[in-house]
């Protein structure tokens, strides 16, 4: 008999935002900022909107795209920045390169004529993070479902997005845990799911549905829990 995996411990992070001495009033300055900003800053601007409004997917999923449209008035580059494929970008160094390429290409094609007033400049920020145990853990897949229903949306966001800021391979730890239980199809589906296309609350609903279905599928070499 194989012993069951360790309980899944749910974590979350709270943060204070630190405003960095990097600002952009034009697209070329945004490119400079993206090049110089710490990785945590890039992470912050790509994810904070999910946490701020957990029940609604905003028009633009990241701060760069929202600023380009609302302040700079350049909807084309805003759409290009919104279409950044974060799900398939394995780490923040790659994301930074992709952002830089989008901005550099757009500058090459359209120039750098637009400027905003100082008050509307893009402010680069980074989170000062404190990671907390959420107080919730799951010893079995059934418990996992129960906990997933009641944890706050920040906890879900932490597990979906925080792997990008922790050392080691980037993986959805929900998928890793279910794979340890032998639910390999479910684990593959969890790993293939793109959390950037929904609000955190919609992601919760989708995950619950996926896991409920997955737990009814047979699994090879069942582990007794």
């Amino acid at each position: 008999m194989v012993s069951p995996p360790s309980p899944f411990v749910f974590w979350k992070a709270a943060f204070l935002v630190e405003v960095l001495p990097l600002r952009a009033a034009s697209l070329s300055q945004l490119l400079t900022g993206v090049t110089l900003a710490p990785e945590l800053s890039i992470f912050h601007h790509l994810h904070q909107r999910f946490f701020y409004e957990p029940a609604r997917l905003p028009e633009y999923p990241n701060d760069f795209a929202a600023w380009a449209d609302r302040e700079l008035g350049d909807a084309v580059v805003a759409e290009r920045l919104a279409n950044l494929n974060l799900f398939r970008s394995i780490d923040l160094a790659v994301v930074r390169r992709e952002l830089s390429v989008i901005l550099a290409q757009h500058l090459q094609e359209h120039g750098d004529a637009r400027r905003v007033a100082a008050g509307s400049a893009f402010r680069f920020c980074q989170p000062r993070l404190v990671v907390f145990p959420s107080g919730q853990q799951a010893r079995t897949p059934a418990e996992f479902l129960e906990v997933l229903r009641r944890v706050d949306s920040d906890t879900i966001g932490y597990h979906l997005f925080a792997p990008k800021i922790t050392p080691g391979p980037v993986a959805n730890d929900f998928a890793v845990w279910f794979a340890q239980w032998g639910y390999h199809d479910l684990a593959r589906q969890l790993d293939a799911f793109d959390p950037y296309l929904n609000s955190l609350e919609d992601n919760r609903a989708y995950l619950l549905e996926l896991i409920e279905l997955g737990l009814h599928q047979p699994r090879p070499g069942e582990i007794h829990d």
Partner: peptide, 30 residues
């Protein structure tokens, strides 16, 4: 959190808070 950041002897980001006594949560060891 601000106090914690101000009083950190060796700044780290993220700062991982160890689990303390349970306070209504359901995870005895955090």
């Amino acid at each position: 959190m601000l106090m914690l950041l101000m009083l950190q002897e060796r700044p780290s980001n993220p700062l991982r808070l160890p689990a303390a006594a349970p306070s209504g949560g359901e995870c005895p060891d955090g």
